[in-house]
Write a protein that binds this DNA or RNA. Structure first.
Lengths: 154, 154
DNA sequence: CCCAACTGTTGAGAAAGTCAATCATTCCGT
DNA sequence: ACGGAATGATTGACTTTCTCAACAGTTGGG
């Protein structure tokens, strides 16, 4: 004994029990993707969060703040400051929901849509880098599998 | 009546552009798994973070704090407080690395190993719930795909 | 032998998350 | 139609997590 017995790990954490833990892999992969995304979006003075809001409000969906909170899994109060900031930059507007006067519908301005157009490129490029080791079809199945976890009971 | 023109979205965010964005799916899936994991680990007074440290130090790997930081993608200072807390609870010990007097090797105590044994059950059950919509083979491929994203250039 | 690099630690400040309270509005049962 | 319960947005306080810079002790290479 003695010798080779403890050679188990110079970089032995890779063989650790956590490496089979999907939740851990999820956390680490997310951390990597988030860091890359934030770095790429920084040139547009955006972060993943604000970018997401901008994308969601640039489409046809006209979400309320509550819907944004639910979709992004944020506290409603976080959506308030997120929208506050984007609105102060003229990228987004709060419009009264004609169907419910309590609710605000958040919609991107032309400037917001223009910015998200550019930002989308940076985001895409960052994702490309993060998933460089995956083939196109692997990315597709990854997306599908993640979707069923991210949106349960579909 | 008023027609169907704006029927685009009651829950129309699900059809949004973000739904194809792997980084977003990663973030949302992670948020869900993390919440479930933390809830399940709470009965052992653990969180995902401390649980991870406990698992990593319960194996044969004998990681240094720097290695823990790198593996968990944390700032070294966060590992300090993480280990501080676990040590104060008698679950983990700091041992001097005989090969490098700067470094601490972190190793779980018997109590730590005992606790992680129970906690593993709760964690497994939580993950089971989170991935209920996936078959066994789907979970396996998800794990594989996530691994290549979480550990680039393998 | 020195100097650059590295480990763990501390501390401060920014950012993110959590939670309760409030106001206006809407919804629902009666 | 009324009144109470529930909902959307907002505010503010508070905790947790993140990020950084500085520092002491140690290592390693030129």
């Amino acid at each position: 004994m003695t010798d080779t017995a403890d050679t188990i790990a110079p970089e032995g954490l890779r063989a650790s029990a956590l490496t089979d833990d999907v939740s851990f892999l999820l956390a680490r992969a997310n951390a990597i993707a988030l860091a890359a995304g934030n770095a790429a979006l920084a040139e547009h003075a955006l972060k993943a969060r604000s970018y997401s809001v901008l994308v969601l409000t640039s489409g046809e969906a006209r979400p309320s703040q509550r819907e944004l909170a639910e979709f992004l899994r944020l506290d409603p109060s976080q959506v308030v400051s997120l929208v506050d900031e984007l609105q102060s930059r003229g990228l987004v507007e709060r419009k009264p929901d004609p169907a419910d006067r309590r609710a605000n519908v958040v919609v991107a301005t032309d400037a917001g849509r223009a910015l998200v157009g550019q930002a989308r490129e940076s985001a895409r490029a960052a994702e490309e880098r993060v998933h460089a080791d995956l083939s196109e079809s692997e990315r597709a199945t990854l997306a599908t599998l993640l979707r069923t976890v991210a949106f349960p009971s579909d």
